[in-house]
Computed example of a mutant assay.
Amino acid sequence: MTATAPTRRTPSAAERAEGWKAPGQDAGWLNPLKERFLLRLLVKKELRVRYRGSVLGMVWSYVKPAVQFLVFYIAMGVFLELNKGTPAYAVYLFSGIVVVNLFGEVFGNATRSITGNGALVSKIYIPSQLFPWASMMVALVHFLPQLLVLVVGAVLNGWLPSPTAAVAFLLGMLILLVFTMGLGMLTAALNAAFRDVENFVDLIVMVATWLSPVLYRIDMVQKSLDGTIWWWLYQLNPLTIVVQLFHVAFWRYSKPVVDELATDHPFAYTLAQPGEPYGLWWAGLLIAVAVFVVGTIVFERSKRRFAQEL
């Protein structure tokens, strides 16, 4: 008895009209838009799993950044006396901390999103792109309380919303999320094959805190590196650009800073040109889009091997 090759089913006219797809096919990088219902379910699942058995629950979204802020403020602001040379240093510091916290959570969670959902990836078909995107949305849920604290702190320091601040914030969020999701999808694909990748990601997040102007002013870096290629590389770091945009959005127009600048104080607060509030935002956006495209391509080409690699 000879085996016959399986025949490929041809969809009917009604199925084609409804957008029928063969099993295993999906919309690629458009899956987060096409499969919004599944994406919401994954976000809810991630939140339930994260706080299962937790007493404080979402309160950890306030506790962890608060402790981080206090440690950095005492070490850098009090011991190294940066608070004396930087008006509204608490706002300056926290506006940078929320950036690196969001970067770290999106990057780390996206990297582990495929391996952490190995049972789902290997047993049933769910578009793989949904896992890193769900990680990003969970990180945004944790980001909102930190943003609220930052806004309250800025208001207490005489900050008032303005079109400049709003545009700077939106640009910063756009660059940060596009850049981090690109990195996250790239490392998620690599981590499925090589588990060492997630350890490298932890190191990158730790180093990123110190290689962007979160704890110190950028003019300190300029004094040390001005005129060298390292100064331009430092400025072109997308995280540096995002942190500076957040400084423009929440710190630059607080009353202590405005009063200080009115006396022609020489410290810098922007990139490239001291009078330009948005600095090198265009470079940050271009780099972020390029990283996102590369990460998406690598993820798309790797996703069919995830079930075997897990």
Rank of each mutant, 00 (worst) to 15 (best):
K34W: 04
M181F: 00
T228R: 07
A134P: 00
G28Y: 11
E276P: 05
M58H: 02
N109D: 00
Y62N: 01
R304V: 07
A13N: 04
V91S: 15
V294E: 09
L148K: 05
E105F: 00
L174C: 11
L47W: 05
V67I: 05
I241C: 08
L144N: 01
L42T: 01
T2S: 15
V99K: 06
R217Y: 08
F79V: 06
T2H: 12
I114G: 04
L177G: 09
G85L: 10
M58W: 01
L236D: 01
V243C: 01
S212N: 10
A3R: 13
V106H: 00
E35V: 03
R8M: 06
L41D: 10
L56R: 02
W133G: 06
R9A: 14
H265L: 15
H247K: 09
T209M: 12
G96N: 05
W159S: 13
E35A: 13
H265C: 11
L156C: 15
F306I: 03
F169Y: 10
S122I: 00
S135K: 03
V149W: 01
L186E: 07
D226N: 09
M173V: 03
T187C: 12
A283P: 02
L82E: 13
V152P: 02
L56V: 01
R16T: 07
Q146R: 03
V141L: 04
Y73F: 06
F292A: 13
G104S: 00
Q25G: 12
N237I: 04
V99C: 07
S302A: 11
V78S: 04
I287W: 03
D26N: 09
V152I: 07
G227H: 14
A3K: 13
V221H: 13
P65M: 03
E18D: 10
V78D: 07
L211H: 05
L33K: 11
G19K: 12
S212R: 06
V242N: 07
R301N: 14
P6I: 15
L140Q: 00
G85A: 10
I204R: 02
R9K: 07
A262C: 10
L239E: 09
V98I: 01
A22E: 09
P277L: 15
G118H: 04
F299R: 04
L30P: 08
V258C: 09
A88K: 09
V149M: 05
L183D: 03
V155C: 13
Q222T: 06
V43Y: 02
Y234A: 13
L225A: 15
A193K: 08
T209C: 12
G182V: 00
Q146I: 00
V152W: 04
T164S: 14
I241V: 05
I297N: 06
L47M: 15
W159H: 07
G182W: 00
Q129T: 03
V294Q: 10
V197S: 01
W159C: 13
L170E: 08
W232A: 12
S162W: 02
R48L: 12
E18Y: 03
A88H: 04
M137T: 02
L130M: 11
L280P: 11
L42W: 00
